[in-house]
Design a protein around this nucleic acid. Structure first.
Lengths: 155, 155
DNA sequence: GTAGATGCTTGCGTAGGGCAACCATCTGCC
DNA sequence: GGCAGATGGTTGCCCTACGCAAGCATCTAC
């Protein structure tokens, strides 16, 4: 049990505090997108021709009910469009509306501006290194969680 | 508005998903500490001779009411002790109980074990680099948030 | 064509957090 | 010495984000 891991735990705790502060700031400043639904919107983007809610739930690792409610909210804000699936009448095809797309890019811009201020003293390489480290870490973390799941299931 | 920042936003989103999964796992596996109150406990540790709730709220950037409730829960689990402050009868001095300390180290161990599995393929230097990057990032982020706050206030 | 799987929604519960109002005390200043 | 305001803490009420279980409609396989 390395002390490195322990140190990282502390760093993550601190980071989460920072993330909470970001969210608060964002919430009070721009009630554009209901916030927290941004993840859903981001998933929907880059999928061009829409997808099922089920797909979103899988990708975000969220419960289908959570996604269902999120989508309902987004639809009520006209940020997402819900069309019947022609080949499966239980399902719906979801897609970003133009409004949804602009709201999403606005949101991303907002975050990017904040981070640009925060990263003013960083070189591009340093930022890239952090991004790469986080990507690798997140991936390895999810693998570790999954393995553990399998161990549990095997018992 | 650099694309580096944008990339980092994505990485952070992914990381948050991972963190959510960790919390779920932890919650289902070990209902030891009410979870989320760990931060409070961690603050209390390393302060040896106790402190006021106000102090905790400032450090964690939480609303006093949130801290108050968290402390109440911890006290009800006998993880934290609440003694009247001899010099200020409004205030209370908070301190970890022995139970609280063991619960805290248990929790930290649990996280460290998980991260050890996740970081199995990492060198110590790589982990240290990520920790350092996160520390720097979190600090710069909070500075950026604070500056922004001041800008707002100046208007 | 019926049994089970699957896509989605809804009711209910939980955790974690904020704001505002409140009480008790403390502090500064007259 | 006394009173006005600041301060520490708690509580009521609210919100968001999430999960689980149950239910409905449809699809799929046999």
């Amino acid at each position: 049990m390395s002390t490195d891991a322990r140190e990282l735990v502390r760093r993550l705790q601190d980071l989460l505090r920072g993330v909470r502060l970001i969210k608060q700031r964002r919430a009070e400043e721009r009630p554009v997108i209901p916030l927290g639904l941004v993840g859903i919107l981001a998933q929907l983007d880059g999928l061009a021709d829409g997808c099922h809610a089920r797909e979103l739930a899988l990708r975000a690792r969220l419960d289908p009910s959570t996604v269902s409610r999120a989508v309902a909210t987004l639809v009520s804000h006209s940020l997402v469009e819900r069309r019947p699936d022609p080949v499966d009448r239980r399902a719906q095809v979801l897609a970003l509306t133009p409004d949804g797309r602009t709201a999403l890019t606005d949101t991303h811009d907002w975050y990017a501006r904040l981070l640009d201020r925060a990263l003013a003293g960083w070189t591009a390489d340093e930022v890239a290194a952090l991004s790469a480290g986080l990507r690798r870490f997140t991936r390895d973390l999810e693998v570790a969680l999954e393995n553990h799941e399998n161990l549990e299931a095997a018992r």
